[in-house]
Amino acid sequence: MTFVLGLTGGIGSGKSAASNWFELQGIQVVDADIVAREVVEPSQPALNQIQQQFGDWVLLANGELNRRALREHIFKDPTARQALEAITHPAIRQSIIQQLNEATSPYVILVSPLLFETNQHELTNHTLLIDATEQLQIQRASQRDGQNIEQIQKIIQVQMPRQEKQKIADDIVLNDGHLDHLYAQLRPLHLKYLAHAEKS
């Protein structure tokens, strides 16, 4: 069984920069956000279930999921969010497990913004939190995505508080400087994970 590292961090924390660095070291990455998009593609059973649950308005004219309309709907209605998650979370989990099992690198990384919130950390042997202050998160996310601050704050509120993640994570990297500073902290961790992988 391959050693699985769970990598997480809030919006704008720099987890994508971290996962990109690990990929450059030859480590395979399974991205929960990409899997979440894949499981609701037109050919997938989850999309039919979403249509049956919510109605035809969730589909665009080309048969794809109307993400924006659905996102706005579940933001206003917590029961709708639960209904959606009951459909998507099992499908996402199944696909993640399959991709982790197929990985051939010395160890494999599961990147997920909701690693702890969705219990995806149960699929990992070890967890790494890329951490940043809320002020930095808002600053980076607004520059990167062009989202307004209110939207970013809403996303942060849905995610587990930083302090809670810090208590659960096995390793924490504070990403409060330049990328070189982030990479310098990742290098010794990469060596540690390689050593763990050899033992497992």
Rank of each mutant, 00 (worst) to 15 (best):
M1W: 03
T2G: 00
G6P: 09
G9H: 07
S13T: 10
S13K: 06
S16T: 15
S16P: 10
W21T: 07
W21I: 02
F22N: 08
E23N: 14
Q25P: 01
Q25W: 06
G26Y: 09
Q28T: 14
V30N: 11
D33S: 02
I34V: 15
A36R: 01
A36S: 15
V40T: 12
A46I: 12
A46H: 05
L47C: 10
L47D: 05
I50P: 10
Q51N: 09
F54L: 04
W57F: 15
W57E: 10
L59I: 07
L60G: 01
A61N: 14
A61W: 00
R67C: 05
R67H: 08
L70I: 06
F75Y: 15
K76T: 07
P78C: 13
T79H: 09
Q82L: 10
A83Y: 03
A86S: 06
I87R: 03
T88S: 09
T88Q: 13
R93M: 03
Q94D: 12
I97E: 05
Q98M: 05
Q99R: 14
N101L: 09
E102H: 13
T104L: 12
T104F: 01
S105Y: 07
Y107A: 02
S112W: 00
Q120T: 07
H121W: 05
T124P: 01
T124V: 09
N125K: 07
H126G: 00
H126P: 01
I130G: 03
D131H: 06
D131N: 14
A132M: 11
T133P: 08
Q135G: 03
Q139D: 06
S142G: 07
Q143Y: 08
Q147L: 15
E150C: 00
I152E: 04
Q157I: 04
P161D: 09
R162D: 03
R162L: 14
R162P: 05
E164S: 10
E164W: 05
K167E: 08
D170A: 02
D170P: 03
D171R: 04
V173F: 00
D176F: 06
D180E: 15
H181S: 13
H181T: 15
L182Y: 07
Q185D: 10
H190Y: 15
H190P: 06
H190F: 11
L191E: 14
A195E: 10
A195Y: 13
A197D: 11
K199P: 00
